[in-house]
Design a protein around this nucleic acid. Structure first.
Lengths: 247, 247
DNA sequence: GGTATCGATATGTCTATACATATAATCGTG
DNA sequence: CACGATTATATGTATAGACATATCGATACC
């Protein structure tokens, strides 16, 4: 009673289970435009009949498609193909030490400067806080195979992260320490390009005026600022790569 | 370019069902580091006992976490916490026209050059294809409120996207046309920084040597290259912003 | 016309059970 | 010991049935 299902011919990788066949079949119809955005997908009981299976099985296929944001399910109304999504990229950025070691290169770290002070006006502006308080200001450099990889300029709000007072940033990079000790709930990246000034050029061993990629990252826990960091990478040697799926 | 970003929104007012509670509970333990990468999550039968439910219920929770790449499940061995993606941002990138108009600014578009030709060696390398075939090469400029916003340099594989031959890229930007006519399954971004050469400087009305942000985007449908595009933005006036949640 | 109620309906969650399948661990044999 | 065969086990898929829940539409009421 089950009717034949077109199999994806370009990859015969894993064994097709029924719910995966259903998922791929629907996915194909959506991606080819046969079922355009807004189209109502057949009801679960219709799909049960079409594929000759139990409702839980089609439900599993549809749930995965919903989790992948390809379709939208509404009680009583039915299941619908979602509006075309914008390109959506998952940018995965490990901390720098993990990133370099993951590449199989040796990681080097030099603390350039680390001071503890009462937040001045510039610090407060950068952290986006109003009250005065204590901060730690850190400048350091990361290198891969002894070649400068990035320089880091960081402020940590000591009132929000009091444990940071006990950390030794001469040994462990602040980014790594924070990731392992401080849970965060929100972050914001701002990526831009600058040309190297004399300080950056000297630290990165590049020419003044060379292009650099800049990541400004601000991290919060429940609306409370934890840290603000600026990372400067040589722009020609470094790339941020994001690979993703969409439809 | 203020590529806008928000992260998933639909977790807020969910009534806690059992499987969701289980999922959130495990998610929390992973994100707080209580269960670090490589840690073996309790077996399904242990979780059944802990939460007092059927195996299908914990299985559903674990399956969703596996689909989100937070955990890895191996038959006979168990379920393990994956190497965390420390920072992961969902960048939602509209095509440039939609982006500019969404900002309430007027969109302008100028086609600089458009030609159809047999792919030369450089084209094939850029598209990552072996066979010779026809391509469309396009250069154009996007502006917001009559200020240059970005320049675009694009190749379209005509064998993969034959419909592109009928499009009029003097009227509609190629990115917009593609987004509306060609479904894609995979894409890759590479973000880097360069300094403006004379051509970019002239087109963007900036100084030669000024920093620029570059996005190289490659798009596939089922392992078939569709298009490769390089977008160059003035680096000081535009930023890629990603805001997201995490743990 | 406007509004409150209520029933029908599609999805959402959960259970208990069954068998399939991949593979870590063990056992047996040369 | 080395190595192939066997077994135990955790996950993977599938089922039928039950009840929950959101909500569209119609009906009744003001």
């Amino acid at each position: 009673m089950s009717l034949s299902i077109d199999r994806d011919k370009r990859q015969a990788a894993d064994k097709p289970t029924l719910y995966k066949q259903i998922r791929l079949d629907i996915e194909r119809r959506i991606l080819t435009g046969e079922w355009p955005p807004g189209h109502r997908i057949p009801f679960e009981h219709e799909l049960m009949a079409r594929y000759g299976c139990a409702r839980m099985t089609v439900s599993k296929a549809l749930s995965e498609l919903a989790q992948a944001d390809l379709i939208e399910r509404r009680r009583r109304a039915g299941t619908f193909v979602r509006r075309p999504q914008f390109l959506s990229a998952v940018l995965q950025i490990a901390d720098i030490r993990a990133e370099i070691t993951a590449l199989g290169r040796s990681y080097g770290y030099q603390l350039i400067q680390c001071s503890r002070r009462a937040a001045n006006a510039a610090d407060r502006a950068r952290l986006g806080v109003r009250k005065t308080g204590k901060v730690i200001a850190i400048a350091c450099r990361h290198s891969a195979d002894d070649v400068p990889f990035a320089i880091e300029d960081r402020l940590i709000d000591l009132d929000a992260v009091p444990e940071a007072a006990t950390a030794d940033f001469a040994i462990e990079p602040p980014g790594t320490w924070l990731l392992h000790h401080v849970p965060w709930t929100e972050a914001e990246h701002s990526i831009s390009a600058i040309v190297a000034d004399d300080r950056a050029a000297a630290a990165l061993d590049i020419a003044i005026g060379a292009p650099c990629l800049v990541i400004d990252r601000h991290t919060w826990r429940s609306a409370r600022t934890l840290t603000a960091v600026r990372l400067i990478y040589p722009g020609e040697s470094h790339k941020l790569v994001a690979r993703f799926k969409g439809g």
